[in-house]
Design a protein around this nucleic acid. Structure first.
Lengths: 202, 202
DNA sequence: CTGTTTTATTAACATCGTTAATTTAGCAAA
DNA sequence: TTTGCTAAATTAACGATGTTAATAAAACAG
């Protein structure tokens, strides 16, 4: 790209381009491997230019997380609208998260393990964000199962936590044991889901 | 400590002192928060002195991991020698790991989530290390249960993985949700252990 | 006391995130 | 077209990082 055309871009469009390049580096090289200078070189601008569009490195990570949760949020609503019962909804919702993690372990790690992007749960709930919206929908999906009398009467948040524990564990294992094959990851994950849901049902 | 006495120390003793200080910083400030200069200031030596005892930052982390696995290894052997059946051994062994994680989440994170200190499983198995020894003992404990006919006939490594998945998940959850209380962490962890072991038994 | 080895330090290099000061381009009004 | 303003981008720099090279100081063996 020539020097002259640099000015032609609109702000939002360019911001998106930066974000997409940033995500690539973050995913490939991890949080530590990412650097503003590396990103600058990739988009062919000077490092300081990035600061005109993002506050700092963590602001870039935050934007990437919000992107993810926006997609997850939409997917949860879609699943909810097409599936035929609360348990089926829950199973699909949970499997979507795990399968995303298995397909994109580095991104999963980036979002859930690298930094406490959204702070404590209280802080998460206080401030408006796509992560907050997603948390509420997931909780509602579990609550629907309880209301329909399909689950043993366990505190909603405990169930949500148990499921996210399982998901986090699968991906953590996947990340820590690189020669844990794709197929067995899938098998273990599905087995875990079945066991958990059966264990939770009446 | 005065300047003159610095020479009085023996190599091994000093190395141990550095390591203990390093662990404190690693645990309190995380992998990123740790710096050679910070450690140097803490032990009241110049940064480069550390390089006489450790190859680099990651070598310090490696030594800390080996320390942990040495303890874990000894504990597993002890549990094995005092418990009365293979299933009880497995339950205790697994609970020891999870409870260590709940008591020392930052250290657990440091060891299992921060870096791939030991590489792939093949690499882990190839090179002699306390982590390698620990892995083999844990696997043996599971194998003992299978040999005693106490478990459904599932591949040993799958069971080992499933258990470590659960453990990793509990700690990951604990780290990511700071106001996940100690009590509920314990409850969820123990529930998970029971469910898993019951699900695995015939 | 001398020579060698061990231990520690100072200085420096390359890289990082980030800020301040400055230049350049685009555009509207005179 | 020229003037002035604003937005966009850059250069230079600061402080901090991991790490290496060169050097000084202490400990010790002969």
């Amino acid at each position: 790209m020539g020097v002259i055309e640099k000015r032609a871009k609109h702000k939002e469009e360019f911001r998106r381009e930066i974000l997409d390049s940033a995500r690539e580096i973050f995913i490939n090289d991890g949080y530590d491997g990412f650097s503003m200078r590396k990103l600058a070189e990739k988009i062919d601008y000077s490092p300081t230019t990035i600061y005109l569009y993002f506050k700092n490195k963590d602001d870039l990570l935050f934007a990437i997380c919000e992107d993810f949760f926006a997609n997850f949020f939409a997917e949860l609503n879609h699943i909810r609208s097409v599936s035929r019962g609360p348990i089926e909804t829950l199973r699909k919702a949970f499997l979507y998260l795990v399968e995303f993690g298995l397909k994109n372990p580095n991104q999963y790690k980036l979002i859930f393990f690298t930094k406490s992007v959204y702070g404590t749960r209280e802080e998460l709930v206080e401030e408006e964000s796509m992560a907050r919206n997603t948390y509420f929908v997931f909780k509602e999906i579990v609550q629907d199962c309880i209301n329909a009398g399909k689950l043993r009467e366990i505190e909603v948040d405990v169930i949500v936590d148990t499921l996210s524990i399982a998901s986090h564990g699968v991906i953590a294992k996947n990340l820590h044991c690189p020669n844990f094959s794709k197929e067995r990851s899938d098998i273990v994950a599905h087995t875990l889901v079945d066991v958990l849901l059966r264990g939770l049902q009446k």
